[in-house]
Design a protein around this nucleic acid. Structure first.
Lengths: 151, 151
DNA sequence: TATTGTTATACTCTATAACTATA
DNA sequence: TATAGTTATAGAGTATAACAATA
């Protein structure tokens, strides 16, 4: 280090971004064939398990702002994959859920995610895959990466 | 696997994106204080070593389209950090280079990149850092990740 | 007054395609 | 005809702030 000027390749962040962007772009093309984006897949997969969530709850879990959730939801609703429901107790509140068509699509998208992961990491030795997972999860835990603004 | 529906966290790509986004966003805020974006830093760091490059060459090295290079260059020129030079032999050709102010900024940005990397990976054991680097570089090599369109 | 969610705005990034000016 | 570079357009992601309705 000292007073040298670091090159791009000197940083782990550079390599991380290189691989991450490639993986995400590849996945984006796969799900595009099913008519959704990566962000929409994440949104849908979350709702698939939770059954229904408020925009605020979804924003917190995804580390996004409420405004971003509204935008995503609008798009998915227009595609007929999600719907909004009113709330009896609190008339300000909304609930987001998948439509039957949305639910039916999730398994197909999950398979594409599996394929994409296999394409990039399948060639790694099992030990390296475990190492990579352990190290990445460790960083997420340590930094509490969900500390993104949701206001 | 079988016929289960993979969750988000089942994929290495998910963890990779989580960490990569956090690292990049953190870095973006740091360089924003110096008036540039991450893409502009990469652009500038490349020109710092090469001294001058054609848009086409830069596009190939950065895995971007020529149009994207033009846009980045426009912004950096407006900020007084880069400049275009004509070419005697071929009057279609252009050459991009940093201005003195641009060159002077690079070491500051490099230090921010060092800091950012340290903030995210400094807490790792040295062995894990090496492992991470080895695995990521391996994936880049294997997949030839620079196969992005430059047309 | 505080909270829920939407709307408006803006900027970056990325990609495609049409265009110009040379060669 | 092919190439170098620019321009135009558009969609996606992200963030901020103002706003309306309700609590």
């Amino acid at each position: 280090m000292g007073d040298t000027i670091s090159g791009l390749e000197a940083h782990l962040g550079y390599w991380l971004r290189a691989v991450s962007n490639a993986v995400s772009q590849s996945f984006a093309r796969k799900v595009e064939a099913e008519g959704v984006t990566v962000a929409e897949w994440v949104f849908m997969r979350m709702l698939f398990d939770a059954d229904s969530l408020s925009p605020t709850a979804l924003a917190a879990r995804l580390g996004m702002t409420k405004g971003a959730i509204t935008k995503l939801a609008d798009r998915l609703i227009e595609k007929g994959l999600a719907k909004r429901k009113a709330n009896r107790d609190d008339r300000r509140a909304q609930t987001l859920a998948l439509t039957p068509r949305g639910r039916a699509l999730v398994p197909r998208l999950a398979r594409l995610a599996d394929e994409n992961d296999a394409a990039f990491f399948g060639a790694l030795e099992a030990r390296d895959r475990k190492e990579l997972e352990r190290i990445l999860k460790g960083i997420v835990e340590r930094r509490e990466l969900t500390e993104v603004p949701t206001t």
